[in-house]
Design a protein around this nucleic acid. Structure first.
Length: 419
RNA sequence: GCGGGUGUAGCUCAGUUGGUUAGAGCGCGGGUUUGUGGUACCUGAGGUCGCCGGUUCAAUUCCGGUCACUCGCCCCA
């Protein structure tokens, strides 16, 4: 059927789905705040260079996944494919590079043009944190610890494994890169087509190839750990000590490379096996060169981002608060009376639903469907005696209550039930 | 961008080895109960059988294309 539908890879966040998203962002925000990270937001689009340079022109994200367009003024703009570059740009734009450290939490939509799959959308949502201006290992550790706490509050930490690696500093990485290319060139003809291409563009990416033939070749490939200089090795050791100190388990994965060019030193991913091919639930690392790339000077950074859709699929979503009272009037004037009486109840924090029509049976049915705890009925009989009928939907008991006392009566009744 | 699977009512799915009125359960409307929900019974509405084309006397069914969804690859949260 030729239905009117949302564009491919996008989806509506109807209340039930939205509740999951809210749960994820709310708990992440709360945890972030407890670490001193405060919420911020950047525009969903930026000048194209903001992403093109730091992420790497050859990265897949930039070369084939961005939504880029020219606006009416002739500027090339890009819908953000991730949050870090924009957050760093915002810090630079606002002159905050003089005030270190900066600690940000953000949540919002991201856009990547790719084939949708389970846990992978063209418009998807991420939460993330960025810690700027802290070059030492305690920064890496804090950010990872924060991420771990978010996952554990969401009840997904037990289903995830923290993979940890270091890419070393620029010097170490270049030395390793050279050794790796040298080794792989010797096996060039046996590499997969994709990896042969990557050999020129980004050889490190070959390390996490899923091709069986590539994997065989990689068994004897040089190990990055052997090429770390003293600074890089010390940094990584310190990160691990911090994590050990707070008892966070991890697994060293020397093949964990990450797709974006701006990473150096620590990289990590929390991975689950519960989401098919999209196992990465939260990923990040250190990006000390990024701020300089955007023209903001030499400022260190570490952070992570996590997919809200993926997290929501893995966590138990608490059900919304129940409806406390539904107000049913059997005619316009009675509905008007209840309309007024509902206000002080809501001001007391009760959740009060309106019966929008006068057919009592139908309204009762709706009260049942939305799981209302009580129903207040005002009809001609009651109105004539200045009372209203208060019915408990759980046990079916109903009492007449004077209209003048109704507000106080309902508040008392529901408060009592809540204790 | 590449490969596999799927597409029948609001939802979950049967079905027609090509044939006249296409079904079920749930949900929805009305009623038994003209001021009382959750149970039960009765009853009703709702379908271009994704779209376009081909084969055929006849296509929802066969064939081709296309679109969408879905799973995987690439890549990534």
């Amino acid at each position: 059927m030729a239905k009117l539908q949302s564009p491919r890879g996008t989806s509506d966040l109807l209340p039930e789905v939205m509740a999951g998203h809210r749960h994820v962002t709310d708990t992440a925000k709360t945890v972030s705040l407890s670490f001193g990270f405060e919420e911020m937001a950047t525009p969903v689009f930026e000048f194209t260079e903001v992403f093109a340079r730091p992420l790497g022109e050859t990265s897949d994200v930039v070369s084939k996944e961005t939504y880029t367009f020219t606006d009416r003024g002739g500027e090339s703009l890009t819908l953000r494919p991730e949050g870090t570059a924009g957050a760093v740009r915002a810090m630079i734009s606002s002159g905050l590079t003089q005030t270190m450290p900066q600690k940000y939490f953000y949540a919002g939509p991201m856009f990547r043009y790719e084939r949708p799959q389970k846990g992978r959308m063209r418009q998807f949502h991420q939460i993330g944190v960025e810690l700027l201006g802290v070059p030492s290992a305690i920064g890496d550790a804090e950010v990872i610890t924060l991420g771990h706490m978010v996952l554990s509050r969401l009840g997904v930490a037990d289903h995830c494994v923290l993979n940890l690696n270091t890419l070393g500093d620029t010097e170490s990485r270049q030395a390793y890169r050279q050794a790796l290319v040298e080794y792989l060139n010797g096996h060039k003809d046996n590499l997969s087509e994709d990896s042969q291409r990557r050999l020129h563009l980004n050889p490190l990416r070959i390390l996490d190839s899923k091709d069986a033939g590539d994997k065989d070749i990689l068994v004897n490939a040089p190990d990055l750990a052997d090429y770390l200089n003293a600074v890089s090795a010390d940094h990584f050791a310190a990160v691990r000590e911090y994590l050990d100190a707070v008892n966070i388990k991890y697994q060293i994965n020397s093949r964990l490379v990450r797709g974006l060019d701006y990473y150096g030193h620590t990289t990590f991913e929390f991975i689950t096996d519960a989401l098919g091919a999209q196992g990465t639930v939260m990923a990040g690392g250190r990006y000390d060169g990024l701020t300089a790339m955007l023209g903001g000077g030499d400022i260190a950074g570490v952070g992570w981002a996590a997919g809200i859709e993926r997290l929501a699929m893995l966590s138990d979503i608490p059900s919304p608060p129940p409806v406390d009272v539904m107000m049913i009037g059997t005619s316009e004037p009675h509905m008007a009376t209840l309309f007024q009486l509902a206000m002080p109840l809501r001001e007391q924090g009760l959740r009060v639903e309106t019966g929008y029509a006068s057919n009592l049976g139908k309204q009762m049915k709706r009260a049942d469907r939305i799981n209302a705890g009580h129903v207040v009925i005002l009809g001609d009989d009651e109105a004539a005696r200045q009372v209203a009928m208060v019915r408990s939907m759980t046990d079916g008991h109903q009492d007449e209550v004077a209209i003048n006392d109704l507000v106080e009566h309902m508040i008392g009744r529901i408060r009592q039930r809540q204790i």
